[in-house]
């Protein structure tokens, strides 16, 4: 078994999760507390990857990033970035594809905190910034953990989007899920099984650890 696709999957999932966390925090905060009327539209757009077939999303991203089209051309000429059939392209696509998996748990976590926590911090002279980092986030550990893990696991499991936008270039875009598909197509069931088993075990371990930690966090907050 060539470990390269597994390694690529790990890199993709880690990078996607980290970047998405930074992007999603302010968005989740805004969605949790804003009274902006167009909020539902924004929420619907973010939620699209949940219901859309991955191939549809991949197809449109492929069109958008294609160097023969305006946006792709602009990316290449100004930023020197080619997002089709490249690793950066995979990262960008994964970020869009996994957006709801990061934002929704964070948003729900923030919304579940009593409003009085935020208001108490304000009346104690603390800015919205300080309140967010010192009061709201430390009390959303469980939501943060869930968001990180769901995003990571979802990115590991990506197939349609990755295949559409990245293709199947060894060492560049051939992630584990694509490698499994290749091996099955070539009737190498043993190799496919090895990749599949690694993904299966790793995913199971991650989720077990997360649920253990989460249960412990909940017990600290609500002692029996």
């Amino acid at each position: 078994m060539d470990p390269e696709p597994l390694w690529l999957t790990l890199r993709l999932a880690t990078l996607t999760t980290l970047i998405l966390f930074v992007i999603a925090l302010p968005m989740a905060y805004w969605l949790a507390y804003s009274r902006f009327k167009g909020r539902s539209v924004v929420e619907a757009i973010i939620g699209m990857p949940l219901v859309l077939p991955p191939s549809v999303l991949g197809f449109y991203l492929l069109l958008a990033f294609s160097p023969s089209r305006a946006f792709g051309q602009w990316l290449e000429s100004t930023l020197g970035l080619r997002l089709v059939f490249s690793f950066p392209g995979l990262v960008v696509a994964s970020i869009i594809y996994s957006l709801p998996f990061m934002i929704y748990p964070l948003q729900a976590g923030l919304q579940s905190l009593p409003a009085s926590l935020r208001e108490a911090s304000y009346t104690l002279g603390k800015s919205a910034w300080t309140t967010f980092f010192k009061v709201l986030l430390p009390n959303s550990k469980s939501a943060i953990l869930t968001a990180l893990v769901l995003t990571f696991a979802h990115t590991v499991g990506e197939f349609g989007v990755v295949l559409m936008i990245g293709g199947n270039i060894p060492g560049v875009t051939k992630v584990a899920s694509v490698a499994i598909y290749n091996e099955v197509e070539a009737l190498n069931y043993d190799a496919a099984n090895q990749y599949a088993l690694v993904l299966f075990v790793v995913t199971f371990l991650i989720l077990s650890i997360i649920y253990t930690i989460n249960n412990r966090l909940l017990r600290v907050r609500h002692p029996a």
Binding site: L117, G125, S127, P138
Partner: peptide, 19 residues
């Protein structure tokens, strides 16, 4: 802003920071 008023507020649910 509430931050800039010399006001103390005791909330009905106390609003203590659990962490």
């Amino acid at each position: 802003a509430p931050q800039r008023r010399p006001v103390g507020f005791v909330f009905q649910d106390y609003a203590l920071f659990p962490h």
